[in-house]
Amino acid sequence: MTPGNPGHLPARRSYREATARRRLAGILDPGSFTELLGPSERVTSPHLAGLGLAVAFDDGVVVGRGLLGGRVVLAASQEGGFMGGAVGEVHGAKLVGLLRRAERERPAGVLLLLDSGGVRLQEANAGLVAVSEIMRALLGARAAGVPVVGLIGGGWGCFGGMGIVARCCDALAMSEEGRLGISGPDVIEATKGVEELDAADRALVWRTYGGKHRYLLGEADLLVEDDLAAFRDAAAALLASPRSLDEGALAREHERLARRLADFGGCTDAADVWRAAAVPDPDRLPLLDADAFRRAVAAARGEEP
């Protein structure tokens, strides 16, 4: 069935290299996705033509309904190729609408395939307000008991306000190549100088924002290979273990974040965190594949080996 793949393992299909639509097709049950407000509706950004910029028929985000392992989920997938997956008025409103639908319809969960530099600067103010509306709608869906799971493995990572949105989710799965933060390397270098963060230092950028460090910190719940099937399995697993939004759960999260600050507050480099976390042989961590990395840091994450 798979030409050019003589072994028994299915060929890996890169999540990072796939378009937003291909990612959805690869993660949801085959043929199950139905798009809401699809390209034929031509609901495009009203703010780009005046700037001489091309629009996209889906404004850079695909939203709809599908099945994951036979269970109904709602899903959104940001297209990093279009304006860096950034959130404008229409793009944001589609995400808000999807999360409100979740609150009303109570599907088995919502999947957010995040690939975004944050607020779309060409419609900056509307983008910021839209991100705020996404946060409220997301927490509204969670409060209604619908788990929201984020997947981060695209070329743009997840930055700016969308980095906050990501951490409003129940859980996140990331690949090593996925990046998560709020102020991206270019923004920090431009505002604080190259001494603060050299955006051209790729090793520094990856160890600061990349999936491995986020997983070690407990910001990401699962670390997966750059593979559609791996993300699919991760999404299914995370939907099954939602994170409560009640007072006790938030108090525990508060303790966890306070402990992180106490343990690692003196660190200005991810490598310092790894050393402080007493991960054996921290310098080799960037070289490990996802599986070996998970084993290497299990104790540092407080897990049974």
């Binding site: 937003a20 639509r21 390209p39 034929s40 091309a54 996209a56």
Partner: peptide, 18 residues
């Protein structure tokens, strides 16, 4: 049913067929 192919990235385009 309509299909859309391609992405509106620099040097690229999307095509919607209906």
């Amino acid at each position: 049913p309509p299909v859309v192919v391609g992405v509106v990235a620099s040097g690229n385009l999307e095509v919607l067929v209906e």
